[in-house]
Design a protein around this nucleic acid. Structure first.
Length: 276
DNA sequence: CATCACACCTGAGTGC
DNA sequence: TGCACTCAGGTGTGAT
């Protein structure tokens, strides 16, 4: 579910609402997420003041005044929403609640429990095991045609698979990889080692553009995803290819129809006529 | 190394 | 209405 634009939107919502607040209490309903919720989460966060909310790849990083950092991942179905006042009873899949001193609650929910909540230190962020092997941020200055080429030039996997690899570029998921390849007119089946320099340039541009468009729309909601304030995203109506098998290709003058294929077990959508 | 099938878990949708 | 089955936005593991 939540890919970079969705996680970015959640981070912005959390930051806008919660920067500077103190955690009054922490309630852990169940610990068995993708990794166990740390047993000392409550004592580490209680009384702490939130000083920043950042995103790295698909991770939400909540940094507190003493450099304690809460690392959250939403998996496929996770939500991180702010409630005021806190609900009288929690829902089935609400796993962890942060109650603030000003009478609100940040609720972490995840039906499938593919997400996680763990602790790290904001002053040693880059060394954390979950973060240390991530590739460049696609919206950052380090992500260029050269840096992309250096990571894929010797790889024999399809571009679809490579772009899902968080060590190649950090934050793309199944939807935005299909959308970016369509915008760049590159076939998802093209092997990394065949990518030309000018193609890498268009791919970098396409990735940036689709991510920026999706962030501007508040992300994409297929089913579970909501922003921090509970509202749904708006980009799902702008998909050119994702889940649009059989429809006409939207590139001007292209007579193709969108097809579905499978790469590494995941659906890929593309136009066989204009993506080369 | 690189690649890939599979597992993790729940819920929604489909077809009978 | 119920059941069996497939699929889903992610990622870590282990086999090849």
């Amino acid at each position: 579910m939540p890919e970079l634009p969705e996680v970015e939107t959640v981070c912005r919502g959390l930051a806008a609402q919660l920067l500077g607040v103190r955690i009054r209490e922490v309630e852990v309903v169940r610990r068995d997420l993708r990794e166990p919720v740390p047993t000392d989460l409550r004592e580490r966060l209680r009384g702490q003041q939130l000083v920043s909310v950042q995103r790295r790849a698909k991770y939400i990083l909540c940094c507190f005044a003493d450099h304690t950092m809460l690392i959250a991942h939403l998996g496929m179905t996770g939500r991180f929403t702010i409630c005021a006042p806190p609900p009288a009873t929690l829902s089935t899949h609400d796993h962890v609640v942060l109650y603030t001193q000003d009478g609100r609650a940040a609720i972490y929910s995840d039906p499938r429990r593919f997400g996680l909540l763990v602790l790290g230190r904001s002053d040693r962020q880059a060394l954390h095991p979950l973060l240390k092997d991530l590739g460049p941020e696609p919206l950052g200055a380090e992500f260029t045609a050269d840096s992309l080429l250096s990571k894929v030039a010797r790889r024999k996997s399809p571009l679809k698979t490579l772009l899902l690899d968080q060590a190649v570029v950090a934050g793309l998921g199944n939807i935005y990889v299909s959308e970016a390849l369509w915008r760049a007119r590159l076939s998802p089946s093209r092997l990394g080692c065949t990518l030309l320099r000018r193609e890498a340039t268009s791919l970098v541009t396409a990735i940036r553009a689709v991510l920026n468009d999706a962030i501007a729309a508040g992300g994409s909601t297929l089913r579970d995803y909501v922003q921090a304030d509970g509202s749904i995203g708006g980009f799902q109506t702008h998909f050119a290819v994702y889940d649009r098998a059989g429809e006409r290709c939207a590139h001007r003058g292209c007579k193709g129809h969108i097809e579905r294929a499978v790469h590494a077990g995941r659906s890929t959508y593309f136009c066989p006529l204009c993506q080369k």
